[in-house]
Design a protein around this nucleic acid. Structure first.
Lengths: 205, 205
DNA sequence: TGTGGTTGTAATCAACTGATTACTCGAAAC
DNA sequence: GTTTCGAGTAATCAGTTGATTACAACCACA
């Protein structure tokens, strides 16, 4: 296998493992086994565990930006410019598209939690600045490229962080009788669709 | 020193250290040194590192509930029942009191992040169920004891989780020229007041 | 054929970590 | 006075972990 393919394979596996176990909790051997290669190979290819985490986080950040951009383009395309002049309808469609895009990313195992793990390492002298810069880019994307107002930006990020937390808590394998199921139904509009794709409480990664 | 005092001292130190370094990142020696006792003593007093984390999380959860309850009582007292019949004004004051109480807890170093660390361990067979139960109690408090509607419940928790993330990112020692300062100003209404109390990027714990 | 580069691993190492054990010290109890 | 007991620690241990090194297998190509 080419080193390019291996690299992508290891990164995909690492996103799943880092998301499930966290940066400190994931060992280089965990990461290697999930990718089906030896521990030594992983370390050599990325220089260090930290290097691998940074690379995995970069993939996550890129994927987020790509998907958000595509979602906005799709929303715009579905309401052609020559339609009626109801701007608020168009804005609503764009907002909706952002949320749906974020929910769809649940299909990428570990993506949300790897991002959150990075955000929790603001005190790390290497990872911290990278994480803050990435968060800053997300905010700039929302405000400038996407053109949303600050109020929606705050709402959207808040909703996203609540989702991340619920995923980390493994709240979603509730049997429907839990104390917070009302909240789950509000946060996951299509609950059944994500039930199979989100991490379960009994899987540690 | 009595073992009761020592216990409280170790728990306070542990909340700071667990919040800064995370569960896996914090060593029992870190925790012991922060509390000014030997590593062996910490382990024996709480049985294990996991036992200490559970005890620290319990303190955090109790503190949250206590402060929320007090904040609501204070809000009710400031608008006596024999005042005008404007229920929406009263509800608004109660909502405001919840947010302010949550922000004030920034004075308890590590409290927010220790909670978030617990929420990220939903896959842990011991900590996971405890964390979910605690989250469930928070939701029930909001909906039943406090009597807020589900919409506000979702908004409040979302806002809280965004705050947690911003704290973890060490976003708050920005010099005012960062890309997301607009967001910070919205999330921390009294920015100067919290600037000295929140973890800085250069302090790892 | 052999030679050099690439992919990949087994073996090993030094450092770290959570936990255990055996011990000290001081004060209260008898 | 010595015995007992709670508070607290130094020393140590077994297991783990990130990283390094030396080496094996394969492939392209002159």
């Amino acid at each position: 296998m080419s080193s390019e393919e291996r690299r992508a394979q290891i990164l995909a596996a690492s996103i799943a493992v880092f998301g499930a176990k966290g940066y400190d909790g994931a060992t280089t051997d965990d990461l290697a086994q999930a990718a089906g290669v030896s521990q030594a190979y992983v370390v050599r290819m990325f220089g260090s565990k930290q290097g691998l985490f940074l690379a995995a986080f970069e993939v996550v950040a890129q994927r987020l930006e790509t998907d958000f951009r595509a979602a906005l383009a799709e929303a715009d395309a579905s309401l052609p410019a020559d339609a009626d002049a109801d701007a608020s309808q168009r804005i609503h469609a764009r907002k909706q598209a952002m949320s749906v895009a974020y929910l769809r990313l649940l299909g990428e195992r570990g993506l949300h939690l790897t991002m959150l793990q990075a955000f929790l390492r603001g005190g790390d002298p290497v990872i911290g600045p990278v994480a803050r810069a990435s968060f800053g880019r997300i905010w700039r994307f929302i405000r400038e490229e996407a053109g949303f107002d600050a109020e929606f930006g705050k709402e959207f990020l808040s909703y996203g962080m609540l989702l991340n937390t619920l995923i980390g808590l493994r709240m979603l394998d509730s049997d429907g009788s839990g104390p917070a199921d009302e909240l789950l139904a509000m946060c996951f509009p299509d609950l059944d669709a994500v039930a199979g794709v989100v991490p379960r409480a009994d899987e540690r990664w």
